[in-house]
Amino acid sequence: MYSFYKNINIIGAWLLGFLWLLPLLYAIWASIHPIEYQVKFDLFAPLTLYNFENAWSQAPFARYMFNTFIYVTMTTSCQFILCSLTAFAFARYEFPFKNILFGLVLIQLMINPEIILIENYKTIKFLNLIDTIPAISLPYIASAFGIFVLRQAFKTVPKELDDSARIDGAGALRILWHVYIPLSIPTFLAYGLVSISYHWNNYLWPLIITNSEETRILNVGLAIFSMEESGIEWATISAGTLMVTAPLIIAFIIFQRQFVESFATSGIK
């Protein structure tokens, strides 16, 4: 009986996996075949790289790729620093209004970033940072979600380890660095993955705050293929999408095992 259920599980997993993969498989199909074969699935259809050339030539994607890399790295590393410091304070220190302050941080989770678009824009203008890469990152680096998950992770660290480090004369930052962070690596990895994929996919804010080729990111460049009036050219948009998502997909395949393990142990699913 057990093996029967196990088989059902396996079949179900494959089926779901296949459904998830379908859009990607279609994008691969559409991007390597001429436009006549977009929905005509003929195994012997001629192959072409024209769609990639065409998509690549419509916007400076190499530059966008570089900008995206800078923006995502900057955002995630700033989040790690700010969030781990804040989470550490909330997890291990007692100070007045602690719960109210933590509540305020959590409220941020409920605010849709689009609502404060104009306010954010005004702040960036005040800082004179419009049309720069830091401007894309800035509104996201004090991430409530990051503070929340890291606080949860730090809370599971045994107090005894903290105490013994303290007895050995370690200061707060040293304890954070040598005790809390090493024990929470899976959470950092999992949170980093969520954050990177979120920022890689971010669209509206980067579109609004940037104006030039030097600051624009991949996803904004991709919008050039949307063409709401004339209809979508699936071949070009598929090729473009594959180019834009390729770095993430390749990174995921390489680090797959680590990602899956870290998700399993961190409890974020």
């Binding site: 678009l117 824009y121 203008k125 609004i208 030039s212 904004v220 919008a223 949307s226 709401e228």
Partner: peptide, 24 residues
């Protein structure tokens, strides 16, 4: 002249109004 690509009509609308409300 600096031409700035701003996505779809809807995106352009949002971007223009945001910039207008912030004086840029």
């Amino acid at each position: 002249v600096k031409a700035v690509f701003t996505g779809s009509y809807t995106d352009t609308d949002t971007k223009f109004l945001t910039a207008c409300k912030s004086g840029t």
